[in-house]
Design a protein around this nucleic acid. Structure first.
Lengths: 253, 253
DNA sequence: CGAGGAGTTGAGGCTAGTCAAGGCCCGTGG
DNA sequence: CCACGGGCCTTGACTAGCCTCAACTCCTCG
């Protein structure tokens, strides 16, 4: 297996689903490792990191319980990121070789998989949105709101956050220096939006935090003027496409 | 339907796959629109944009032929981004309500779908990697290499790029001002790495362009020292998990 | 008790954002 | 036909914000 995790138990003879336990700082998936399983995070939190050629550790995302991991490797066979536990965590593991057969035998799992994948795509867009802000305090505000939303999804208090990752990891995700993260924390704290105590963050003024997070760049960037301009009128085409063709296409590109 | 596209033809009575033609600047998917179909881009190129509260148009990604679109909406029922054609384009449309049944009737399509989803996740991580660079010329270099890789995937020349998007869209994706994109283009051109003529870009020195793209931030950021540190040893757990539970979990979070 | 990581804060230089002007190209309309 | 307007792109000048380097504290761990 591609990780420092301990196999705990098979859950069922028929189903190749295994529960793994991952200790803090242990690596569940190694970047570049062959794809063998997909995982669903059961408890704890993880970070997905890409080690760039110059040795810089780029954090791509933080994973909360329920998230799907390792699925990216399906199309190229290798893991694009490493996955490291920020605290003790447990995951369900699902062998990739048996994934296909399993999907057919169990439509419920199949649907759940589709949903989870869809969700992961949405989250990826959310990460991009976070990084799109210019000002560093705005980035941090968005990050905190993002974490808060995750807590709410998980049914926990969205006001009290316990950040399991270090400042450097946050800085990496947001694309700023880790000192800047520190400064941005004090900016938000001085403004009375949050109370910060090391990794414990309490959101005091959600509304003002949201307002700050809205600032993207300049004053509206005149983008509001650029209306959709639907032209849309086009000539009909001959009906050559087909299902197999479509299937081939989506594999190809 | 949520778009200014023209329906062209049904491809098969049994299969709800339709070919749509989208004119330049037309919108295939509107942000916030209900999820009704998934699409596979057949020809042309698109951009996915998120209009933020302050009116700023955040470009999330550029789509090339073969990419899957609209799938993010599955889990929440609404499109998280708008999708706009950068040039005349065609897409295969697949009704979402019939998607489930179709997947079961045609495993080949199902597998293709999984692969495409996996690919989309990988691409999302790639976008994050692009934005992670600090220096603007490095960001642009990565963008050009990214476009080049897409061209190679499509079987076209990876050296001659025709950028269908305007500078402002590139700037939005990279998280910089559009003037900065201009300046970065001239930096790369002056360095002899590329030849730029409006939207036509020729890569002259791939190797040096790659070298420039490697610079992430500072000199190694001492991250190279932070070795994995596998602790990994943990106590076994009782075997409570199960397939239905796992399915429910991946839906829940 | 010392070593080292994590976090915070300060000083200074430089990148990139902002504002502004000008050129180019292409659409519409006089 | 050419004038005009309006994108798109580029370039310049100024300035704000962030990165870098550095020092210091706190805390954990061996």
């Amino acid at each position: 297996m591609g990780g420092d995790a301990d196999e705990v138990d098979d859950t069922d003879e028929d189903l190749p689903i295994t529960l793994w336990r991952i200790g803090e700082h242990a690596t569940l998936l190694h970047e570049g490792a062959p794809a063998q399983s997909v995982y669903v995070l059961r408890s704890g939190s993880l970070k997905c990191v890409k080690t760039l050629e110059d040795g810089y550790e780029q954090v791509v995302c933080f994973a909360q319980p329920g998230e799907l991991l390792g699925f990216e490797a399906l199309h190229c066979g290798r893991q694009p990121t490493s996955v490291v536990a920020l605290e003790d965590a447990t995951v369900y593991a699902l062998s990739m070789t048996e994934l296909l057969g399993l999907r057919q035998r169990c439509p419920a799992l199949d649907d759940a998989l589709q949903l989870a994948l869809s969700q992961q795509l949405t989250r990826a867009a959310g990460v991009a949105e976070m990084m799109s802000a210019v000002a560093s305090d705005v980035r941090l505000a968005r990050f905190l709101l993002w974490m808060s939303a995750r807590m709410a999804e998980a049914g926990r208090s969205p006001r009290r956050l316990l950040l399991r990752m270090c400042r450097r990891d946050i800085a990496s995700l947001l694309g700023v220096a880790h000192e800047t993260v520190s400064r941005s924390f004090t900016i938000l704290a001085d403004a009375g939006h949050v109370k910060v105590e090391n990794r414990e963050v309490e959101i005091l003024d959600l509304e003002h935090l949201r307002m700050r997070a809205r600032n993207t760049r300049g004053p509206l960037e005149e983008a509001a003027r650029r209306r959709p301009q639907p032209t849309g009128k086009g000539t009909p085409m001959s009906a050559l496409p087909w299902l197999p063709q479509m299937a081939a296409l989506s594999v190809a590109a």
